[in-house]
Amino acid sequence: MSPPPSSSSPSPTAPSGDQLPGEPAPVVPSAGPSRTLYVDSGTAIVRRRSGRVVVERPDGDDREECMSVPAVDIERVVLVGQVHCTSAAQRFFLEQGIDTIFLSWNGRLKGRLDSSSSPRSELRLAQYRAHDATGERVLLARAFIRAKLSNMQTMLRRYARRRSAPALSESADTVSDLKRRAAHAEDLDGLRGMEGQATRVYYEAWPLFINRSDPMFSFSERTRRPPEDAVNALLSFGYTLLLGDMQVACATVGLDPSLGFLHTLRRGCPSCALDLVEAFRPTVADSVVLRLLNECRIAPDDVKSRDEGVFLTRSGREAFYAAYEERRQTTVTPPGFGSPIAYHRAFEAQARMLARSLTSGADYVPFTIR
């Protein structure tokens, strides 16, 4: 079990510049710190007790209280595996607007409790219209891919300088060229093809990112469902946590998380959340994985083979939660913002940016770093 962090993030500011009459409203994400409670023990029971969230575990015929946190200190709860959350606790989370995310033991997103009772009808209608308008859909998909490729390119150039590795600079140049070509793609299939090429080039460079001699943490290619090695297990787990965050951001703003523009419409697929996740894969999830590896914060015992794949053990997941929360609290200045905000607020800011674009016709400004 991991308690919510006590650190806070600076209050966000709207994009710089005075708003002129008739201009879309500035994008301002919610202020304040994000506090996440992770419960990752198959025998744990999550209860409500007065105004507190209590985590217990069986102790013979009794129960041992292993954590008690004031509800006001929690914004999000992540329940992993077979954790039991009482119906009273679930009702309490819904009443208090505490987002609750359910993950499987192997890091698959199973679902979430959504307390949103009145989605913005005008936003949903605008989202549906944009999805059905081929030109607008391609325009948005280009922006999502441009941001992803731009941030992959930045990661490659950063590591090229750190490692003095010309091969990484060459990979960055290839991704840059594909980014320019993607900006002129006329259809989604062509755009997805260029994104796939750039992603392959990026992952082919990953062995040069990892400063770890242990063969347990070698990497050759991206594999998933199931991940075939330790590095892929870390990547998959990071992308799952990131997707959960983005689904919450979409719901907070009023977007339909399932109706995207780049990703296809499939039953149970949060396509819109996946669209917004693309820009944050390199800067958040990949950054966390590389920190865990290169700072030796993950050990061989933190992963294990199971069900024809490789997955994190509980100790590995706990190490990941800590590093992921550190990254969520790290500040960054999104394009158009006058001062830094925490990454977890940047997720919501991008969802708001998309909502503003859909309802007002303003250009969608994707999230990029330098």
Rank of each mutant, 00 (worst) to 15 (best):
R200M: 02
E308H: 14
G244V: 04
S11E: 12
R370C: 04
L168G: 04
V80G: 07
S164N: 10
M67A: 15
R161T: 10
S115C: 12
P21K: 00
M353D: 12
G238W: 02
R161K: 10
E318P: 03
D40V: 04
R76W: 09
G42I: 06
T333C: 06
Q90L: 15
V28A: 03
G268V: 14
S339I: 06
F237M: 03
R108W: 09
Y128R: 10
A141S: 15
S258H: 14
V69Q: 13
P166T: 02
G193E: 01
F237I: 08
T252G: 10
A89R: 06
L103C: 13
D229K: 04
I74A: 09
S271V: 09
E136V: 13
L242E: 01
D177P: 00
R281P: 13
F144E: 11
S169E: 12
G17A: 02
R35K: 12
R35V: 06
F367D: 03
R181L: 04
N151L: 01
I210F: 09
L234Y: 10
A349F: 07
A71G: 13
E318D: 13
E228M: 11
D302W: 11
R224V: 08
Q96P: 05
R281A: 01
Y239R: 00
D73T: 08
W105V: 13
R266N: 15
A44D: 03
R142V: 13
R181C: 03
A160L: 00
R306P: 02
L255N: 02
S360T: 15
Q329I: 05
Y364I: 07
L37C: 06
I98Y: 12
S271C: 07
F261I: 06
A167E: 12
Y128H: 12
I45W: 06
V303E: 06
A362M: 00
P21F: 08
T240P: 05
D286S: 11
D99F: 14
A342L: 08
E204H: 08
T313F: 11
L168Q: 03
T240W: 03
F93S: 05
F92A: 10
L188R: 08
S271G: 15
D256E: 15
S34Y: 09
V78Y: 05
R200W: 03
G97Q: 01
V69W: 08
S171T: 13
R181E: 09
V69F: 09
L178M: 09
A355S: 11
E308M: 12
E228H: 11
D286R: 07
T199K: 03
V72K: 13
R162S: 10
P257C: 00
D114S: 14
R225M: 05
Q82W: 13
V303K: 01
D307I: 05
L312N: 13
G268I: 11
G238K: 00
C296I: 09
L140D: 08
L191A: 02
F93I: 04
S287E: 14
A14M: 04
I98V: 15
T154L: 03
A319C: 09
S116H: 06
P4K: 00
Y321H: 15
E295C: 12
S339H: 05
G196P: 05
T223R: 13
L149K: 00
P58W: 00
F337M: 08
G107T: 12
H84I: 13
S271D: 11
L156A: 06
Q19T: 14
G135D: 15
F209I: 01
A349Q: 09
G316H: 04
F320T: 05
R281L: 12
P166V: 00
P300Y: 04
